[in-house]
């Protein structure tokens, strides 16, 4: 297959050499079926080995290779070079501190995810001998969509609320918390209430809907946030009970 040379502008930041990030240009011979991640790997392999970026599965599952391509948060393993015209600008995810080049610091993101206890909380765990927790297809359908999140953080990069309120728990964490609240096997609704409905929870969301626009797995975090608002309001008024393990 014939290659086509494409120009890439990549935001570089090496803390030992630079006080702030700046763009650097690269001419990359690209195969017609390349994705942006292939071009980044080609730069690192053949042009500039100092480039740092994250990637793993190359098939849209691990969520590691999220970056801004021409200003839009995407998984670079799923963004075909041929779909972009002219210069392709690649930047690290917005709303995250930059550790190096295209690598961002995810500590805050991970803490936010942890804060909603994204696991099944039970009053009493069954013994193994008692068998598995049963769930009907209809019960699974209640939350299945929200369980498709791969924690790629694209929704955080797209969220304008996070740009102005960095402490906002954020779309992915709320979608995950909502996913477990909807799970028929879970009893930890009350334990998640403060994180999801506190000062930095669902009520900080002001309907930008960008999270759902950029989600590569069509999770629709905006739907989770807005459903969680309704549920939270009904629980606050006492109309809906909180499931609790205590």
């Amino acid at each position: 297959m014939e290659t086509q040379t494409r120009k890439f502008e990549i935001l570089r930041y090496r803390p030992e050499e630079q006080s702030e990030p700046e763009f650097r240009s690269y001419e990359v011979p690209c195969m017609p079926d390349w994705v942006v991640l292939d071009a980044l790997n080609a730069i690192k392999d053949d042009i500039d080995p100092t480039l740092s970026h994250r990637w793993s599965c190359r098939m849209g599952v691990c969520g590691s290779c999220g970056m801004l391509v021409n200003g839009r948060p995407v998984l670079t393993c799923a963004a075909f070079v041929r779909d972009y015209e002219g210069t392709i600008r690649v930047e690290p995810l917005s709303n995250f501190p930059i550790v190096r080049d295209l690598v961002v610091e995810l500590d805050d993101f991970v803490h936010k995810i942890q804060s909603v206890k994204p696991w099944i909380v039970r009053k009493l765990e069954k013994d193994v001998e008692q068998g598995e927790y049963r769930q009907s297809p209809a019960q699974l359908e209640e939350f299945k969509q929200f369980s498709m999140c791969i924690n790629c953080a694209l929704c955080y990069a797209a969220c304008p609320v996070l740009a102005s309120e960095p402490d906002f728990v954020g779309p992915a964490a709320i979608a995950l918390g909502h996913r477990y609240n909807l799970d028929s096997r879970d009893e930890g609704n009350a334990e998640r209430y403060d994180a999801m409905h506190g000062h930095n929870g669902v009520w900080s969301c002001s309907y930008a809907n960008e999270c759902s626009q950029v989600c590569p797995k069509h999770v629709d975090p905006a739907m989770a946030v807005n459903q969680a608002k309704l549920t939270g309001a009904l629980q606050w008024t006492g109309i809906l009970p909180k499931k609790s393990m205590t």
Partner: peptide
Amino acid sequence: TPVAPARPPSGFPLAHAR
């Protein structure tokens, strides 16, 4: 770890219709 500050979404708040 030394980090560069988080950057706002590209074009925020007025460059894109969204």
